[in-house]
Design a protein around this nucleic acid. Structure first.
Lengths: 142, 142
DNA sequence: ATGGAGCTTCCCACCGTGGGAAGGTCAAGG
DNA sequence: CCTTGACCTTCCCACGGTGGGAAGCTCCAT
């Protein structure tokens, strides 16, 4: 083989996916079983490395394992309709937007409360008051 | 009795914290061990219910169990400096902002890619191309 | 007294990741 | 040849929160 094959550790270094996670992805079926040496060591060729880089990038974009599996399948399918890929991306975008909105709501509430808290040595604290009173006052507009 | 005491299930209904989580919070030390009936049933009084509501509200604001524990302690301490509470809130805000920024970066990258993907029946797909090529092109400015 | 709702504890699962133990392998150096 | 140390293998455990469910007990209404 042109490029020579590498062990998990090397593959991890080359791709930024930890050896632990590489094995885990394989066990989960995200990656096909790696080739093994006589002694049982996993070995990765150039194509495997490219796959791992794909996985890493997808992971960095917030796709979960299942979605990455679907993306890999589409990647390998030369006849895929780009609409299928786009659909996955868009549902991920929607999920990300949902989570962002939830966190944003929390952050805004807390910022409002922290603003009202003088934050000195005195015990009066609107933050605790809010937590204690806590009528479902989600974020409101102001 | 003024309020009467209630069982876990009732407390769950009153506070929106599931019975399962109430037991778990107790096991984790977030809540003091509940009073028990002769038969071993947990019983909660009005103060306990208020505490659970406090916990629920704090949880909804994105505090983790450890932070909620600290907030509870400060809540019970009449001499607390409000600065201590504010500090916790602010570090939580910072954490939320960090997570929001990370998710926002992912969402923006994906949106950019999805925009470039015509999403029809043809196989050409800039999303997959990006995942495959994936040089660390984080989010950039656009 | 019986049925069913509700309680108890305990275990298992998820997701993605890391830590570490126990043991096998490989290459380098003595 | 043998040791050493880095690396590999598998397996188990943990995290944070949450839910599911089993086995067994209790309580209340009929």
């Amino acid at each position: 083989m042109s490029g020579g094959t590498v062990t998990v550790g090397e593959a991890a270094r080359l791709t930024g996916v930890s050896a632990k996670m590489i094995r885990w992805y394989e066990a989960r079926g995200l990656l096909p079983p790696a080739a093994r040496s006589a002694a049982g060591y996993r070995h990765y060729g150039e194509a495997d490395i490219r796959t791992l880089q794909f996985v890493r990038r997808a992971r960095d974009l917030g796709f979960d394992v299942e979605a990455i599996g679907e993306l890999l399948a589409l990647w390998h399918d030369r006849d895929r309709p780009s609409a299928a890929v786009k659909a996955i991306a868009q549902s991920r975008i929607a999920e990300l937007r949902r989570r962002i909105a939830a966190l944003e709501g929390m952050a805004r509430s807390l910022e409002r409360l922290a603003e009202d808290c003088c934050g000195d040595g005195r015990p009066e604290c609107p933050i605790l008051d809010d937590l204690a009173a806590g009528e479902g006052k989600p974020v409101k507009s102001g």
